Computed example of a mutant assay.
Amino acid sequence: MAWLPGPFLCRTLLGFLCLNGLAVEVKVPTEPLSVPVGKTAELVCSYSTSVGSNFALEWSFVQPGKPISASHPILYFTNGHLYPTGSKAERASLLQSPPTGGVATLKLVDVRPSDTGTYLCHVNNPPDFYTNGLGLINLTVLVPPSSPSCSQSGTAFVGGSAALRCSSAQGAPKPVYSWVRLGSFPTPSPGSVVQDEVSGQLILTNLSLTSSGTYRCVATNQMGTASCELTLSVTGPSEGRVAGTLIGVLLGVLLLSVAVFCLIRFQKERKTTPKETYGGSDLREDAVAPGISEQASPQADSRKGLLERSPSASTATTTKSRLPMLL
């Protein structure tokens, strides 16, 4: 039976390889790095290995929320030459040149919000034994809040409610929002105000005329503040009734206009419908005109008799006219 080395012997052998520089070990800071926008970021990466002709160092970047396999290279060092690459090549460099002394710190100038993400320091030195040849550093670019946008939903009436909203398009870390009432007007009662610092929403309920005024929203993070203002106008009860009456009148006029339009169209369609007619072939020779009875038509009977005798008379006339010609 073959003899296999025990755990103690494996650890001893691994320690021996490390002491003799036959292992690759990369170390990076464990804490995330935060740098204000426009400043310079230095990402420290140290390693231990027996640097040889096959030594290679690579820095790469992956956006937040994406896997490491989706990383993009920033620069590459091998055979004594540095090769910057990618969209960050013009702003990226190494503090150590060449980076063969055990430290390979990445320097990134004029950082931008798009630089926020994870940076990978990868050391490759075959045939050295690998223990941990990869280090990850999380960088956050700090951005002050941009000027927020203030908005109001709905129309405010006495006794009703109003929702005021506030939001900044930029800001890292994400800003928190607070609303304040400007001027010397009395503030709404505590029970009528609901404020959400995360979403930037302010809800005012049970409004009164004293709720009218100017409200300011302030967006804040560790880089600074920005604000916007909004004027709230609460409509009184009488004005609310007038508005409701006006809306009712407009709706009534609209419904009446629709009804008149439909009636006119119906009348036009009725006039253009063709009436039922009868052709000459449908009339009877002995038909009686409407309103005239058969008993009240003796003249018609006499005319009928004359028409029946008219062929004989015509024949006689024709015969008399031909006698002189026979003579």
Rank of each mutant, 00 (worst) to 15 (best):
G135V: 02
L134S: 00
F8G: 12
T78M: 06
A172C: 02
L57K: 01
T116S: 15
L13I: 07
G244A: 14
G135I: 02
L57S: 02
C217D: 04
C45A: 05
A2P: 09
L9G: 05
N124E: 13
T235M: 03
R112Y: 06
Q267V: 11
T205E: 09
S60P: 06
S87R: 14
S208W: 04
G213P: 07
S147V: 15
G224T: 04
S314W: 04
Y215C: 07
Q295I: 07
A56S: 15
G6K: 07
P173Q: 12
P144V: 01
P298M: 09
V111T: 09
T40E: 15
S208L: 09
D301A: 14
A316H: 03
A243V: 04
L251S: 12
G183Q: 04
S114N: 08
S87P: 13
K107E: 15
V260P: 02
S314E: 00
S302T: 12
K271M: 06
C262R: 13
E308M: 02
R322D: 00
A172T: 15
V176Y: 07
N125A: 02
F77S: 00
V103N: 04
D301K: 15
P145T: 02
R91L: 15
G154V: 11
S71I: 03
G154P: 10
S321G: 09
G133V: 01
C121A: 14
Q170T: 15
Y130Q: 05
C10R: 14
A296E: 14
G102N: 04
S208R: 13
E294S: 10
S114V: 13
N124R: 13
Q201T: 15
G236H: 00
F16D: 11
